[in-house]
Write a protein that binds this DNA or RNA. Structure first.
Length: 502
DNA sequence: ATAGGGTTAAGT
DNA sequence: ACTTAACCCTAT
């Protein structure tokens, strides 16, 4: 049996190792993780995401978001204030996210993107931050930078000065410094600590031997995946590894004693959770987190394991950062990555990406409304967190539709050739949404209705006042946190509604 | 990306 | 049963 707690340990361990990103992702999907995810695992995922950005040398708004989420996570774990290095990284990345648009200015763009970015990042995002509980992220440096950015909007000399600076290197360095510090603070992966306490030999057999070879670990993980971790059961390990697997079981039992005497273990600053909680596995949050991570680390198109394996051999797109404090020396060989988008990772793009069969089994096919044709997610993070802020790892809120047919569950690759077919009704303009099972065996998932909060309404009202009607995407990007559960279309619809009442 | 028509479901 | 906010689909 592979319990949720052990699954967390394994994932944390893997995330801290230089395994391929796709492998880590597959494991994220395959493992029976607990829900809510343990804070320590969340933080590990976020750090890994940062690490990925760093090794890809791709800093974007999503990097900013990662840093914000880390701050929020630390804060909810009781940390007083974000560390200097976190605040410094945030400031440096914010500066880079703005100035890079200055550098990239092209013939058809007369700096408009830069002005947009200043507005979006500095006038909206940072201003929001200042007013929020996350104000700790707003350092003196950040304030100064904000002044400078706003000055740059009106003063070409400041812009030229900005362009002359290597803000990218500065930001990458700042992120690197923070990462090193954070990983040090986290200490070695939990699994490693437990294993260490039990047997040096066992630890080596997991592939963390002194030769630093990852091959063995890769093989083991692939076996694990090939065997499909189902129903919390891990029966895919080769015989030789079963012993290790049951060793894990023993570990779980030993958790108390081992951790009870973990004085020699490194301090667990920042993220207070020294140990993973063991909570019942509810699919929703786990899925959310999986989405966040998957969409953030993987290249846009990931269809199945086989393809990914091919990709691994033929086209090793990702140069995964060594993670666990191996140091900054590999900066030079981190080539720029064509496949990486600047998109906010927490938002999946389109239907095709949603059509992942891997996690179908985890979807809550709620039939509480008695409608057999609809699957409903219960993804209201407020429900879990009470009056708390929405979950950090909110599942992709912009996903609108989810569909598949029975055949594609059995053989996903064969039927996914032209997914858009299924969207079109052969005859009429619109499909009969209420009978999805009858005509084409397609499920339609409708998002749960969420009433607009007064904060959302007020923010929208002000934003429209400021930026005008119709700039929905821009407005959303100005308030990524407030509108994280809304699509641009939602904003538009809401405005339409608000206008109807007046 | 956005506008506008259409659908769903919560609330009365 | 009716209203309407929230959500979905698709032409442009």
């Amino acid at each position: 049996m592979l319990g949720p707690r052990i699954a967390s340990w394994i994932l944390e361990f893997v995330l801290r190792r230089p395994v391929e990103d796709w492998l880590a992702n597959e494991l994220l999907f395959a493992l029976p993780l607990p829900s809510p995810l343990p804070p320590r695992l969340k933080k590990t995922l976020l750090l890994r995401r940062l690490s990925s950005d760093l090794s890809l040398r791709s800093l974007s708004d999503r990097t900013l978001l990662s840093l914000e989420l880390i701050e929020e996570l630390d804060r909810s774990a009781g940390a007083d204030a974000p560390s200097d290095s976190l605040a410094a990284a945030y400031a440096a990345v914010a500066v880079e996210c703005t100035t890079r648009l200055l550098r990239r200015r092209s013939e058809d763009d007369r700096g408009g993107n830069f002005f947009d970015a200043v507005n979006r990042i500095w006038s909206c995002r940072v201003a929001d931050l200042e007013r929020s509980e996350a104000a700790g992220l707003v350092s003196a440096t950040l304030r100064e930078a904000r002044k400078e950015m706003e000055e740059a909007v009106v003063n070409p000399i400041v812009r030229v000065d900005l362009m002359g600076r290597d803000t990218k290197m500065a930001a990458l360095d700042a992120v690197r410094v923070y990462l090193e510090e954070a990983e040090k603070e986290m200490g070695p992966p939990y699994l490693e600590r437990v294993a260490e306490a039990i047997s040096e030999d066992w630890r080596r057999s997991l592939g963390t031997g002194s030769d630093g070879s990852v091959g063995e670990l890769d093989v083991m993980l692939r076996n694990l995946l090939a065997g499909r971790v189902e129903d919390g059961r891990c029966d895919g390990l080769p015989d030789g590894d079963r012993a290790k697997s049951s060793g894990l079981l023993e570990l779980e039992k030993l958790e108390g004693s081992v951790l009870g005497r973990s004085k020699d273990a490194p301090e667990q600053g920042g993220c207070s959770t020294d140990k993973f909680e063991c909570l019942p596995a509810a699919a929703t949050e786990v899925m959310k987190m999986k989405y966040v991570f998957r969409s953030s680390v993987l290249p846009a198109k990931i269809d199945n394991m086989k393809e990914n394996q091919n990709q691994m051999y033929l086209n090793p797109v990702f140069s995964v950062n060594d993670g666990a404090g191996k140091g900054p020396e590999n900066d030079h060989d981190a080539m720029s990555q064509p496949n990486l988008t600047d998109q906010d990772p927490s938002y999946l793009k389109h239907g095709e990406e949603n059509r992942e069969r891997t996690f179908l089994s985890s979807i809550d096919r709620g039939t509480k409304d008695g409608n057999p044709g609809t699957c409903s997610y219960t993804r209201d993070s407020m429900d879990h967190a009470g009056a708390q802020k929405p979950s950090l790892m909110d599942w992709n809120p912009t996903a609108r539709k989810f569909e598949w047919d029975e055949d594609s569950i059995l053989s996903p690759s064969e039927n996914s050739a032209n997914p858009s077919n299924k969207l079109q009704s052969p005859s009429s303009k619109r499909r009969k949404l209420s009978l999805p099972l009858e005509d084409n065996k397609t499920f339609i998932i409708r998002r749960r209705k969420r009433k607009w909060s007064s904060l959302e309404e007020e923010t929208l009202r002000k934003a429209v006042e400021r930026h005008g009607v119709g700039n929905w995407k821009f407005i959303k990007s100005c308030h990524p946190e407030i509108f994280k559960n809304r699509t641009e279309v939602d904003l538009k619809d809401k405005w339409r509604n608000m206008m109807r009442c007046v």
